[in-house]
Design a protein around this nucleic acid. Structure first.
Lengths: 250, 250
DNA sequence: ACAAAAGTGTTATCGCTACACCCATGT
DNA sequence: ACATGGGTGTAGCGATAACACTTTTGT
């Protein structure tokens, strides 16, 4: 792709500030790009993060976000999907770009820019792949994070901040639940993310009044109390409401 | 910094997926990194974007976001500040990272990843620098965007979406106004960003009830109607309210 | 019978909307 | 005097918080 790149001192990129006049353009093509995935799930009333244990230096033995270098001819979104798929077996899940991190000294081997991605997955769909590194994968509670390699702690915290904002304004919480869920589960999920308590009656009235949930006519089974109705998120309804100016808010 | 980088096939970075086993690590250090700045101001009841006209190919003659390549030893936030300072003479203004853009084919010269930054400036503080390229700098209304080079239109639109969300949840609108402003100006600003109308009385009651504005005891001058009080944003008050669990919302 | 969580109804209050009205200044 | 935007008060409505209560299942 760039084998024929000019290495003259001309301002080929057209940047206006003269910052790199007289500096060969090749000198700027020294960066590597990686993606790091913040994969979140919901389990046992808590938000859980998928981390791997590093087997090599630097930061050997520490927990880290799953990630990888991006190939020079690979779109970075594709790379993030690749990491996610390799690790969890899942694709077609919620996957969104977060921030980028590029401190000069963040990686000992050279200038590596990393782009954070975050993914919300339904834990019941997750089956760790039977591969050599699967043994190193663990879920940790986001309220009890271990020490993480590189600047991964920053990445996670910024994602969680972002999630707390987004979950209030967009119906993405459902990504963390099974297709069919009870209102109780939904409420507990919101309570876990936002670290609050809601009144049961009021929570139900609010969410049901939005007409975003479809009653599946099924009931919970194998619970030692009154079984709850199972609902599913009605994406079609949401999209048609959006067009009419509806805005989700919790 | 990376002149001593190993080019063995070892998995030096410790990535777990085997994606690049047998591929020399050097092959991954072929990216360039740039920053592109979405510099927004508020003038004549509209949100304005600072663009430059490109003098060189590709996209010669088109309008583009001001940006530059990042030096291999430069932090990208620093690069964004550099671009902003070179162009507007301003520093210490609101400058935040937006998304990154890395489509394989987004730049003809090679694999250039760009990180979008956005900045909110008070137009009354802006003085275009007297430099050779200053003549190519223009403000355009964000509702009447010209064709933009590269994927810059995407960048601008994502920043504006982001701004509309953020301005409702954080008191950043003030960055676009002079230090001292009237409630009328503040209301017009919110109306311009969110593309709505507010009731004057209600807007005032809401914003004043937050106790975030300091009455400067000064009045507007040279207006042909009753002069308005001038307020300033009380950052101290905001920060101490934050600690008590206050959350801004408009 | 009891525990445990599902599910519902009622009331009081708070906040927001809509709208009417007055005020100070320049022309 | 009038035009213009600044600035304020209030009545009514709707959403929400708080809380009590009933229902259905398993043990």
């Amino acid at each position: 792709m760039n084998s024929s790149r000019s290495s003259s001192t001309e301002d080929i990129l057209g940047h206006q500030f003269g910052a790199f006049y007289k500096i060969p353009i090749d000198k700027f093509f020294q960066f590597a790009l990686s993606v790091d995935c913040v994969i979140l799930g919901y389990h046992e009333n808590g938000i859980k993060l998928l981390v791997i244990e590093r087997g090599t230096e630097p930061h050997k033995g520490k927990k880290a976000l799953p990630g990888d270098l991006v190939y020079p001819t690979e779109d970075m979104e594709l790379a993030a999907n690749r990491v996610l798929k390799d690790l969890t077996g899942l694709d077609e899940v919620y996957l969104t770009q977060s921030k980028s991190y590029g401190q000069v000294d963040r990686h000992p081997i050279g200038r590596v820019i990393t782009v954070g991605y975050y993914s919300l997955i339904s834990v019941d769909r997750y089956q760790p792949l039977a591969s050599s590194w699967a043994a190193n994968v663990v879920w940790v509670d986001v309220n009890e994070l271990p020490e993480l390699a590189f600047d991964h702690k920053n990445i996670v915290h910024e994602v969680l901040d972002n999630l707390r904002e987004t979950v209030r304004l967009q119906p993405i919480g459902f990504e963390l639940l099974p297709k069919k869920f009870t209102l109780g589960q939904l409420q507990e999920l919101y309570e876990a993310i936002l670290n609050t308590k809601f009144d049961k009656a009021n929570f139900r009235k609010k969410i049901l009044s939005m007409n975003l949930l479809k009653d599946t006519k099924e009931l919970q089974t194998e619970v030692s109390h009154r079984p709850a109705k199972l609902f599913s998120f009605d994406k079609k309804a949401y999209e048609s409401l959006l067009k009419k100016g509806f805005s989700f808010e919790m």
